Simulated assay, not measured.
Amino acid sequence: MTEQQEQKWISAAQKGDQDAFEALVRLYEKRVFALTSRMCRNSEDAAEAAQEAFLAAWQGLPFFRGDASFSTWLYRLASNACVDLLRREGRHQAAAGPSLDDEELNLDVPDQAPGPHEAAERRELKEQIEAGLQALSPDHRQVLVLRELHQLSYDEIAETLDLDLGTVKSRINRGRKQLRNFLLQNGNFSPLSSSKETGREG
């Protein structure tokens, strides 16, 4: 699928072409659901948030001016739908205090042919990371999912969520601190000063 084809679908969908919009949904539904699955507590909520995001996209397409890419705009709608759902149902927890720590968490566990014992440990770690993400407030979970799991830069997150860059950095720092504390309390994470990475910001 070329960028030119995507633009044709967008232009047609803006004029009310439902087939063109369905093509955009098929193009992005897996990525949107991957995002909402990380932010919501269960698959039903994730599916509901994804559906709300695409509904908002359909309703908002006539006003989409292309200042940001369509994917960035759709990510924003999906993220906001998740936050709205979590807040509406009152299932988020209060955020912890601020932190200036900017240590990388390396949430993507490598897949280099592990042995059975190592594979089990990695599965356990991934499960603990998922549980830790669910323990965060929606705002902090939102930025961490986009940064660590979808590999967006700070600037891209700021654009996606329509936030100041400083707010993005602050939320990521606080979210990392909370998640790291969660993993430490569950005995599945050891803070290593050598694990800090450079050059990934922005």
Rank of each mutant, 00 (worst) to 15 (best):
G166D: 09
S37A: 15
S37G: 09
P98G: 01
P98Y: 00
L100R: 06
R171H: 12
E6S: 12
R180V: 11
R26H: 09
Q185D: 13
T2E: 15
A94V: 08
S195P: 00
W73D: 15
E48T: 14
E29M: 01
E3F: 12
H92N: 03
T198L: 07
E201R: 00
L27R: 15
R180F: 08
W73K: 14
L179N: 13
G199Y: 00
Q18V: 12
L184K: 15
L27F: 08
H92I: 05
F64S: 06
V32A: 13
E3K: 13
I157F: 03
S137R: 04
R141D: 05
S170I: 09
N106F: 12
Y154T: 05
R88V: 00
A34F: 08
E124G: 03
L163E: 02
A68L: 13
G66V: 04
P98A: 01
N80K: 09
P191N: 06
K8F: 01
E156P: 00
K8L: 04
R88F: 01
S193M: 07
M1R: 14
E29C: 02
E3N: 12
W58M: 06
A23G: 06
S137A: 14
G175F: 08
S193I: 10
D155F: 01
F21S: 13
L144T: 11
Q151P: 02
T72A: 11
L85D: 05
E104W: 02
R31M: 07
P114L: 10
E22Y: 12
A131C: 03
A78M: 14
R174P: 02
G199I: 00
R88H: 02
F63M: 03
A49D: 08
P191A: 14
L149Y: 14
F189M: 12
N80I: 09
A23T: 08
F54D: 07
F54T: 11
E124I: 00
A50T: 13
L24A: 07
Q59S: 06
A96L: 06
R176H: 06
